[in-house]
Design a protein around this nucleic acid. Structure first.
Lengths: 229, 229
DNA sequence: TCTTGTTAGATTGTCGACAATCTGCTTGTC
DNA sequence: GACAAGCAGATTGTCGACAATCTAACAAGA
């Protein structure tokens, strides 16, 4: 019999689709921080009842990008400078750990995947598609987590990534120029192919610090925000 | 005017209470790994409709202690040896980071809280209340995370803690003796009061490795499990 | 006997309506 | 005018019923 690995069937519940829609809206900045999500209005727009919408919102609350106050409403999380600092400093620690775990696991598939994702970033950069640029860059970055073979670590990073993506999107939205940062990915990919693990870890830190400064400056410019409907 | 800090009013939604009830049942092992949660039965037992119950379940799914398969059901997560290894190895890394952040933040309130929680562990140990013993030990451990002043790190640890508590409870349930581990907390608390940060970090690792061996042996004994109703 | 189609029962997913709560405005009183 | 009480509208929380889907048992055919 021919061996063929089928991937699991996609979740076809309304709830899952709503989660995807809302998450995308939040992570791309279409829904602004602090903004209230009106259940009735959204459910009507999506042509869906409130039940699956509310369940979807619960998931996103636990995912950390929404926050809920009983009988008051559900809101997109606020972003403060401290949040960004916290997320980044944790990210550094996790990166170092992920590289350490993934290092001996690197195989041909890893290198292929590395090239593929790097190429995706370059293409998004050329196309000036900033949203996809952020997405692909984070996916490139996530490769070491997928190869680290530690489910809890991967899960943790995915949660962190949600926020990072949101931060970058907001930053991007504030200043309307495309992000440069091309060369950085170049050396990052090269180091992951090399044999000096410490060097890769070191660069991961500095790479992060690169964009970090800009993001932080943006964050400091926030600090004032009102919740709108 | 007299300054008085009021703590927020408790969430009085059914959903929040259901979450607390279910979480407790899972973390104490009353609901076994792999077990299916029948919505109708549980909602009847709790005298609640399925809507808030389902929302509560979504939260616990995102919290990582339940898993959901569309149209099939929601189940308590399975526990494998690898899960335990993964959780612990990440915990080590996070501990080291938390101690580093919390170290300069230690103040009188920290030391008081340290003593208080340590006392709670000892009392639970004397009373042979294994459930509360696990809880208090984890709370003692969580102190450094609360003082680290990094919201993302704290949140990450709380998620991790859920699983650890579940693992310990299962382990505890399998072998019916009380956990010893008294002296370990003693030295841990002493080191956190001292001036040698590196030593505290080192001990945190070894402390963990102590109980770890037993837990792992238990985990290896699992590896076979069927999903029951 | 093995496979395939069918059906009944149970369970999850979704809906529309009602209850509880909050918010802002109005009213009345001093 | 200041302030508390109370009312109306909007919004969230909860409920009971229906629709969609799955599972397991059974029947039919090769």
């Amino acid at each position: 019999m021919a061996k063929l690995d089928f991937s699991p069937i996609a979740d076809t519940t309304r709830r899952a689709e709503i989660v995807a829609l809302l998450r995308r809206a939040i992570l791309t900045g279409q829904l602004e921080p602090g903004q209230k999500l009106n259940e009735l209005r959204i459910s009507e727009q999506m042509r869906v009842s409130r039940a699956p919408l509310r369940e979807a919102m619960r998931e996103l609350v636990q995912e950390g990008i929404l926050t809920s106050i009983p009988y008051a409403g559900t809101f997109v999380i606020d972003v403060t400078a401290k949040d960004i600092i916290d997320a980044y400093s944790l990210n550094k620690v996790l990166d170092e750990f992920a590289i350490e775990l993934a290092w001996p696991q690197r195989d041909q598939r890893f290198f292929d995947e590395l090239d593929r994702r790097h190429e995706a970033v370059k293409q998004a950069t050329r196309a000036l598609d900033t949203t996809s640029q952020i997405e692909t860059a984070l996916q490139l970055h996530g490769l070491i987590y997928e190869w680290a073979d530690n489910s809890v670590l991967l899960e943790t990073w995915q949660r962190l990534t949600s926020r990072l993506q949101m931060y970058f999107a907001l930053h991007q939205r504030a200043r309307n120029e495309p992000v440069p940062a091309e060369d950085l990915h170049e050396t990052y990919a090269a180091l992951l192919k090399g044999s000096d693990m410490r060097a890769a870890q070191r660069h991961a830190r500095e790479h992060i610090d690169g964009d970090f400064e800009e993001l932080l400056a943006y964050a400091r410019g926030l600090e004032k925000r009102a919740s709108k409907n």
